[in-house]
Write a protein that binds this DNA or RNA. Structure first.
Lengths: 174, 174
DNA sequence: GCCACCATGTAACTGGTTACATGATTCG
DNA sequence: CGAATCATGTAACCAGTTACATGGTGGC
């Protein structure tokens, strides 16, 4: 078969594997689960859903209220997903602007470095708190998701520790 | 001014800030330094260099041997870079296929999970070793780069620890 | 002097983001 | 009932990737 799925389309199939969803619901589901490590925008979701439908991997129901349409996976779609998910996953890809700021830090005013790091620290601390709060529930209900969530927790802790150890975040005056 | 630089173009200016480079050299420089956390391909480099030249932020020298052209930053380019680098950096973005595999792991044959994790473990261990070997030199020569490298080291250790704690990597038989 | 490999670049395609439009719902 | 907000989707643009072309260089 060698279904030419891209990872974004495939992960949509992953959700659809369990039950039908609308585009909007999929968007929310991503945001609330794997979104931090596989982010996609709504526009992309709708586009991929369209092409999945064209290829017969899903079927789209009739428009309900407000153009809302449920998408359901087909047997062909199930087969394509199972094939995709069992393949060797590619390398991760990270784009971390704060690391660019650090890398070129010798031309950045130290006060800006401190501000930027402090701001990032806050959002990472918040995310960590949310993850930790979610963990017990997810562990009980979706053990595989919990393993991904565990990565998130470890990742956020790593980022926080790194920020805290930056020279301009430790010295009272740098 | 509000120079509309994207992060990729801006980081090229960051290298050019110090001295002239050719496109090829920039590509190597990225790979060997920040590439893991801000990867760009050669095609992109050439395209961005062209538009930077059109906007007067760099000048491109005459073709030397084999079409090779040195690019040099202009005063306008310097100003644009300084402005860009002092702005608040955006959120990081991660796309980690192995996490998708894990997230949807309940439909993946355990043996495949083990293989995939083992393969990733190897490449992450290799990267960690390289980073650790580079650290002393970088610390001495480019302290800001060393801080970014330190993030890389912490990150790789986190990934390795996470993989090692996955249930299918610990149990003798899962 | 030929073969393999390294260096240099472009073009076309695919995927991701931003901006916009508009129809339901809710709440004061 | 009017304003604010939530839900739903499209279109256009921009960034990133893949595939290709071709000219030097170095080793045998």
């Amino acid at each position: 078969m060698s279904s030419n799925l891209n990872a974004t389309a495939a992960s949509l199939l992953g959700f659809l594997y369990q039950r039908p969803w609308t585009g909007w619901e999929l968007s929310r589901a991503f945001e609330e689960s794997i979104g931090q490590f596989w982010s996609i925008t709504r526009s992309q979701i709708y586009r991929e859903l369209r092409t999945l439908a064209e290829r017969g991997l899903i079927v789209m129901g009739a428009s309900g209220v407000r153009e809302r349409r449920e998408c359901a996976i087909t047997p062909l779609g199930r087969a394509a997903f199972l094939e995709w998910i069992a393949r060797m996953p590619g390398e991760e890809q990270i784009r971390f602007p704060l690391l660019l700021t650090t890398f070129f830090g010798d031309v950045v005013p130290p006060e800006r470095l401190r501000e930027a790091c402090a701001a990032h620290r806050r959002t990472h601390a918040e995310r960590l708190a949310i993850y930790e709060q979610q963990l017990p529930g997810v562990c009980a209900e979706a053990p595989f998701s919990a393993l991904a969530l565990d990565f998130g927790i470890r990742y956020e802790r790593t980022v926080l520790a790194w920020i805290d150890d930056l020279p301009w975040m430790r010295d009272p005056q740098s």
